[in-house]
Design a protein around this nucleic acid. Sequence first.
DNA 1: TTTTATTATCGTAATATTGCAATATTACGA
DNA 2: TCGTAATATTGCAATATTACGATAATAAAA
Lengths: 107, 107
Amino acid sequence: MGASKLNIYNKGTTDLAIIAKVFSHPARVAILQYISKQDSCICNDIVDEIGLSQSTISQHLKVINDAGLLKGTYKGKSHCYCINIERFQEFQTLLNSFFNQTKSNCC
Amino acid sequence: MGASKLNIYNKGTTDLAIIAKVFSHPARVAILQYISKQDSCICNDIVDEIGLSQSTISQHLKVINDAGLLKGTYKGKSHCYCINIERFQEFQTLLNSFFNQTKSNCC
DNA sequence: TTTTATTATCGTAATATTGCAATATTACGA
DNA sequence: TCGTAATATTGCAATATTACGATAATAAAA
């Protein structure tokens, strides 16, 4: 971007944007939907499911993980990703409080 | 992006991503927060408030508006923007149903 | 230890986003 | 109509994102 001014906003504003960014690409939404449907998850399944390359999926998983939305343990050869429900709920709370503060007062 | 594959996802997935994208930049979150606090809103006020140039703010407003999140009427010389609450609630509903379907079953 | 399966990282190309200055457009008031 | 204030658009530069193939790293199995 043209010198992204990311330091002029307050923390709540930036936080909301950071988490929203995770959801701003359909691949990541699809990955999250898929993971949340599974009992456990192997990354290779995601590749077959979504239709992107392994490296691309891996990068998207990194973005999701960096936002704190995943938990994971190792399980045999494959990693087991799952949703970090607590972090999810933080996001939901942040959004809901944003919505609750939002009014339509004109027009 | 490297040939963004936007046609391989189902509609609900894409919809969520499109609306999330509006919130994925703090400038837009700040604009929405500011508008929702006002009884009515004049764009020039936003410019003073957020700290970006008039043309940049105008472009962000266009992104927000294209997603259907604004309503507006003309009021004197200035445009009056306000939040399209109905559309906002659609977004909230979409997110909530996403969260409700989300489980943490492993780890 | 070597092989194999799985996931992460690197390099690179294509595309998208962000931001601003300059300019155009729009609508009101004199 | 002309001037003025407010908003939109255009053109450009800087940066970020997305995607993939190739390759590296890791851990279990042979």
